[in-house]
Amino acid sequence: MIPAVRSEFRKFFTTRLWWGMAIAIFVAGAAFAALFGFLLTSETARSGEAGVPTGDATQVASSVYTGGLSIGYLLLLTIGVLQIGSEYRHKTISGTFLATPRRLRAMLAKVVALLGIGAVYGLVSLVGSVSVGAVVLGLRDQDAFPSGTIVRTLALSLLVLGLWALIGLGIGILIPNQVAALLIGVGVAWIVEPLIGFAMSFWEFGREHVAQFLPTSATNAIVNAVSNGPDEVRLEWWGGALVLAAYAAVLAGIGIWRTTRADIA
């Protein structure tokens, strides 16, 4: 298992993708921290009007530090799709399974590697967001580290990125065309899900019992971000983590199950 994981890391770090992604994630972390740092501490934000993102000092700080994740998790979704999709596209999957003919082991190595890659990029993102965010909050006379919850949030953001990479892995297997997989994955996370969330807000049952289980809402719950309005129903952080983990487990699980049985032609 360890050799297979090492091989997966090498696959990832021997193409140009990784540092392009690293720069993007760092910049996203820093830029969203600056943006949220100013927006969430502005007069309107503190007024508590409906429709304006609100939260306590901890939630504000959490949002500032994890604002870049909305970009970050899409990038990790992309990485997850590519980690398997490019193997199909360039037919390197044959070599992978020749080296590790126990396919379940080969695929679990991908899971482990993607969780690791998620954590590494999580750190990259946090270096950008915490350094910039703390400065901005300081400028706005806000407490940069209002409670210990912040530490939990930062740690969990590493997990969030890994889980989104696994969701990508599953999508990448289930939709063999890499480009289609990327478009559908990103489209669902960024367009379809917000639309569903918006539709839910007009339907009381949906708003109270369904919307919080959507992957992005679960992600927001994990990192304890500010809410979009007083009506929003939120899972506990651990509930969000379980929900997101369930998405990752189901998608990656089905994908892996299929891969272990399919003919590689």
């Binding site: 050799p3 297979a4 696959k11 390197t92």
Partner: peptide
């Protein structure tokens, strides 16, 4: 059977690691 963006040597290193 090669990733076009990976060098031949790295391709072999990936296999060697596995």
């Amino acid at each position: 059977n090669f990733h076009p963006g990976r060098s031949g040597r790295d391709h072999l290193r990936v296999l060697a690691a596995a």
